[in-house]
């Protein structure tokens, strides 16, 4: 029963990402002609693609084989991205994005890099302590939401999913961070940092000329 629910959840996630990706590509190709019927059609195409056999194996199975535990913040970002390109709704503000990328960069670096640096600390093991993990995540979610950030809702989604055992993993870490979210966060923060450094230089150059 749980396995069937997991598979259904995973297929839905793959379709969502494909739909958002196709919609983003279509919008870029023809920004002025993107009626709702065409958006819906892309959803149908995405569903078809998810079951498209590649080498005899459906695309969603290939994705599941490689990445069986997509974290909830990443899935949430997929939903936000889907809302942006398909529904043309912008749910996240600048502070939300900053919070999302900062959390991903810090959590991922702690989790994935620590075994190479401090072998005496087993950070991943903390994730099996569901009570403790839920309390920490809950506190972070409360602080983020009380600060007015919608990004805190991604942590709430992770908590609910942990309670429902939505993922294959039973470790709380896998509900809040995965390697793709981590690398994406590092990339986005790096890009933002580079932009922030370039801006004063440009301003200074403009002042000199």
């Amino acid at each position: 029963m749980r396995e069937k629910a997991l598979v259904g959840f995973y297929i839905a996630a793959v379709i969502l990402f494909l739909w958002a990706g196709l919609a983003a590509a279509a919008r870029r190709a023809a920004p002025t002609a993107f009626p709702s019927r065409r958006r819906l059609l892309l959803g149908v195409v995405a569903a078809g693609l998810a079951f498209l056999p590649l080498g005899g194996v459906p695309l969603w199975v290939r994705a599941f084989s490689f990445h069986p535990n997509p974290c909830l913040p990443l899935l949430g970002l997929g939903v936000v991205g889907w809302g942006r390109v398909v529904l043309e709704r912008s749910w996240f503000g600048r502070e939300d994005w900053l919070a999302v990328w900062s959390f991903g960069a810090v959590a991922g670096t702690v989790l994935y890099v620590h075994p190479l640096v401090a072998t005496d600390v087993d950070v991943y093991f903390w994730g099996w302590e569901r009570g403790v993990a839920a309390s920490v995540l809950g506190a972070m979610a409360v602080l983020t939401i009380a600060g007015g950030l919608r990004a805190g809702l991604l942590l709430v989604a992770a908590l609910v999913s942990l309670g429902l055992d939505v993922l294959e993993s039973r470790n709380a870490w896998d509900y809040v961070i995965d390697p793709f979210y981590w690398l994406l966060s590092l990339g986005m923060l790096g890009a933002a940092f580079r932009r922030a450094i370039r801006r004063p230089r440009r301003a200074a150059a403009a002042g000199l000329s």
Binding site: A134, S135, L137, G138, A141, V142, I145, A146, G152, L153, L155, V156, L159, V160, G163
Partner: peptide, 9 residues
Amino acid sequence: GVLLALAAV
């Protein structure tokens, strides 16, 4: 949102 987070915990 805060109530939702507490309920989730």
